[in-house]
Computed example of a mutant assay.
Amino acid sequence: MCNLYTVRKTAAEVAEYFRVPNPIQSNAGPEVYPGTPGTVIIENNGIREMRSMTWGFPLRLKDMKPDAKPKPVNNIADLTKPMWIGLARKPQWRCLIPVTGFAEAEGVKGSMTRTWFSVKSEPVFAWGGLWRVSDEWGPVYSGAMTDANEAVAPVHSRMPVVLYPHEYDLWMHGSLSDLIALQQRKYPAQSILMERTNDLWVAKRQVVSEEPTLL
């Protein structure tokens, strides 16, 4: 799962990297948590746009109280599940999530620390995602996950679907089979940089990191 990532670049730098003509200022912070604002890249009439959206699709569980807030489903375990496949089939609901690094918790429960992963020689990279407009939070997005490569596996069994720059258009315009192939392939471990820290992992909020098995 991925419940924390960073975008330590300005809007102008992100726009230049992703060839977006409209850099926008968002209220998203440099660290992005589930249920909080983040910046994504979508396409509208063939032109890439930066949009500010909430990270996580709102989900109400059957045992939740009527006035309880939905849980943000911020990770996509399987693009072929009913919750996702309808969006995955349609290019207009695909997005690129700008990332400079993603974190996983490591260590003993209660005193876990943040371990960061980034892509070598890439100041920013794209995580393949989907988005939609929700009744609860307006535009929302979630990121596709895949099996961890050898660099991430010592810390967690899953990792974001990291895309090469030449795969950005494939994610945005390819077939459903193309997206599934990208989700199933492993990003090379030699391209990943790991940084262990002493920073405590502090959960900002309760999250649903992957969709329930019934979906």
Rank of each mutant, 00 (worst) to 15 (best):
N3K: 04
L4D: 00
Y5E: 02
T6C: 10
R8T: 10
R8S: 06
K9F: 00
T10W: 06
A11V: 07
V14C: 01
V14I: 14
A15E: 05
E16I: 02
F18G: 03
R19A: 12
P21R: 11
N22M: 10
I24A: 04
I24T: 08
I24L: 09
S26L: 11
A28F: 11
G29H: 13
P30F: 14
P30M: 14
E31F: 08
V32L: 10
Y33V: 09
P34G: 04
G35R: 06
T36P: 00
G46Q: 08
E49I: 00
M50T: 05
M53L: 15
W55N: 07
G56P: 03
F57I: 11
F57P: 02
R60C: 08
K62N: 10
D63A: 14
P66A: 06
V73R: 09
N74H: 15
I76V: 11
I76C: 01
D78F: 05
L79R: 02
T80F: 06
W84T: 01
I85L: 04
G86A: 11
L87H: 13
L87R: 15
P91R: 07
R94A: 10
L96W: 10
P98V: 04
F102W: 12
G107V: 12
K109D: 07
K109N: 08
K109A: 08
S111D: 07
M112W: 00
R114D: 01
T115K: 07
W116P: 00
K120C: 02
K120M: 05
S121K: 14
S121Q: 13
F125G: 01
W127V: 13
W131P: 00
R132V: 03
R132H: 13
S134C: 05
D135P: 02
V140I: 09
S142Y: 09
S142M: 07
A144D: 01
M145L: 15
M145Q: 13
M145S: 03
T146W: 05
D147H: 12
A148W: 10
N149Y: 06
E150R: 11
A151Y: 06
V152Y: 02
P154Q: 08
H156V: 11
M159I: 11
V162R: 03
V162E: 03
H166N: 14
H166Y: 14
Y168E: 08
D169H: 11
L170H: 07
W171V: 09
W171T: 06
S175C: 03
L176H: 09
I180R: 08
Q183F: 05
Q184Y: 01
Q184S: 11
R185Q: 14
R185L: 05
A189S: 15
A189F: 09
Q190D: 14
S191W: 13
L193Q: 13
L193F: 12
M194T: 14
M194V: 15
M194F: 06
R196N: 08
N198C: 03
D199M: 06
V202W: 04
V207F: 06
E210Q: 12
T213I: 13
